[in-house]
Computed example of a mutant assay.
Amino acid sequence: MSKTLIPEAKNGLSNFKNEVASEMGVPFKEYNGDLSSKQCGSVGGEMVKRMVEQYERGMK
């Protein structure tokens, strides 16, 4: 069973995903079944890359 620990994070991550997808030209919307795995994976990979970069900047 999954439990959301920080409910506010869900909206933040959704907004972040949409922002990254928009910058990459990937048309995210309510239904994303017409997108390729490559498109979805590239958005997720870019999100992780940016989060790691932000974390590393915070450690300095």
Rank of each mutant, 00 (worst) to 15 (best):
M1C: 03
V52E: 04
K38D: 15
V48N: 03
L5Y: 06
K17F: 07
K29Y: 05
K49C: 05
M47C: 13
A9L: 10
F28S: 08
N18C: 10
S42Y: 07
P7I: 03
E56V: 14
K3D: 10
N15P: 00
V20E: 06
A9H: 01
K10L: 04
K3T: 02
R50Q: 09
V43A: 01
E56I: 14
E30V: 04
N18W: 10
D34Q: 05
G58K: 09
S14K: 13
E19F: 13
E46M: 07
K49V: 03
N32D: 08
G44T: 13
E56Y: 01
K38F: 12
V52F: 03
G25E: 07
P7G: 05
G25Q: 05
K17R: 15
F16W: 14
M59T: 06
G41S: 09
K3Q: 12
G33A: 04
K38I: 07
Q54H: 03
S36I: 00
L35D: 02
A9I: 07
E23I: 09
V20A: 08
S37Y: 13
M51D: 11
E19I: 10
A9N: 08
P27Q: 08
G33N: 10
G25M: 05
S2T: 11
A21G: 04
S42L: 14
N11E: 13
A21I: 12
Q39Y: 01
C40L: 14
